[in-house]
Design a protein around this nucleic acid. Structure first.
Lengths: 253, 253
DNA sequence: TTAAGTTAGTGAACGGCGTTCACCGTAAAC
DNA sequence: GTTTACGGTGAACGCCGTTCACTAACTTAA
């Protein structure tokens, strides 16, 4: 039988550690308001820029790597926000994560831009894969599915949907594990896409500042988006509590 | 009485023409897939880079200038799309302009990014002013107002809205002419903001490629966004026709 | 018409960027 | 113990935004 190589060689350990340090240095730069540049990252590691080419094919790949790790780290924070609520408060957990997402985006606009407002279309297949591996997407699709497993609210039927949507739901390219989701329940993924679109619209507009500052500050457009979306996932009766929950987190955040 | 200076001096004419050529050269670069750079723009005009500093304080100001002009030109296209419909088909005209906006954004992603996905927050007051002067915003607020003047669909009442929203509606910083809109009707602006948020969310997600390619191609998430929004502006009965109108324009666009 | 003053342009330079390349120790592999 | 592969260096190239001293041309006023 094939044994898993658990003990990486000395060189491989070094290499792995260096990868981590590259990401760490890049994120520090970002956090300090500076731009990510090969020279800056390298010098922060006590290296010179050309050395980084032993780890990364080019600048864009460095940025993609950093974006991927930022998404992973941020997702942990979104999940933690959900864990502050009871395990069976599925709707509350979803609201908590989404609210945390918004607050993270507003406090880390550069990171948000890197992960969520970077054109993927013009990139190679590498980045296309990243799309489906998007960690925060997996978290929220999972949360929405948990909610539905519990409430079993009505779903859009595939037969009622346009063909392009049906195809996309049967074999989705977005970050969602649907292999074990029955075909007749795939309407749930369509609902998720709708919800993600609304969430994204509000947050992107807020982060880019294309919205009245007072409404950004209070987060009321974000709350309003939730109010619009709630009925689609059978939460009309719970909406009052959920919106209050979001407002609380916004106020104290 | 003070006479308007209609005959600009020779120098002023030259200067104005040069401004226009700067914008033209920049847009050509953008259209060819190149980046805007002072050197590239200048050499396209038969100049050297430092000369541009006689017209623009720095690189960012050049970009802002170009973004402003792009928005103006694109808005003319959005308006033209509306003019293909009867003058009294207010809903249809709004749908036509919004659909044209989406198609323009997808065909000109770099221009879209420049105008609508550029962080305004970190910029100076110059750019803040641009926010309220945004041409496409004025077009669509105007269209939504024309629609409402005709249908007089119910509006959210100021008393029911959060205080931050009320303040923003009474003295809006977004592109909207509301001076002649009665205070009790300002809920219309809130509806507009909601609609703009949905439209923006779909389009930005599509342009950045963070959506299933098949759904981008068919535009069905865009259509779905309209379906969600229609009831808010009293268009539930007209929705069928309007969605068909949008689909037509998408298909032949 | 001439003199003074303003303006728009130049070339050289600075520091920083991504990227390439020849080169060199050192650690791993045989 | 020799060979090989890897990870690093410094120098260089061609971009970039930006500054500065300088000049030629145009405008303005005497």
């Amino acid at each position: 039988m094939t044994q898993v190589q658990t003990t990486a060689s000395r060189r491989e350990q070094q290499r792995e550690a260096n990868f981590e340090e590259i990401v760490r240095a890049s994120r520090e730069l970002l956090a300090e308001g500076a731009e990510i540049s090969l020279r800056a990252v390298a010098s922060r590691m006590g290296m010179t820029a050309p050395a980084l080419y032993r780890y990364v094919a080019n600048y864009q790949e460095l940025v993609d790597l950093v974006a991927f790790e930022i998404d992973k780290a941020a997702t942990a924070a979104f999940a933690a926000a959900a864990d502050a609520l009871p395990e069976d408060d599925y709707a509350g957990r979803l609201v908590a994560s989404a609210t945390e997402f918004r607050m993270w985006a507003l406090s880390n606009p550069r990171e948000f831009g890197l992960v969520f407002a970077n054109p993927i279309a013009e990139a190679q297949c590498v980045r296309r894969e990243l799309l489906t591996q998007n960690a925060s997407g997996h978290l929220m699709t999972g949360q929405m599915r948990a909610l539905w497993e519990h409430t079993r609210h009505p779903l859009p039927q595939l037969a009622d949907l346009p063909e392009s949507v049906r195809e996309a739901l049967l074999d989705p390219l977005i970050p969602a594990e649907v292999d074990d989701l029955a075909v007749e329940d795939r309407g749930l993924v369509w609902l998720f896409m709708q919800g993600w679109t609304m969430l994204y619209g509000v947050v992107a507009l807020e982060v880019f500042g294309h919205m009245d500052p007072r409404i950004i500050e209070s987060g009321e457009m974000f709350v309003e988006a939730f109010r619009s979306f709630a009925p689609k996932v059978g939460l009309e009766d719970d909406a009052g509590r959920l919106l209050a929950l979001a407002r609380d987190r916004i106020r104290q955040g």
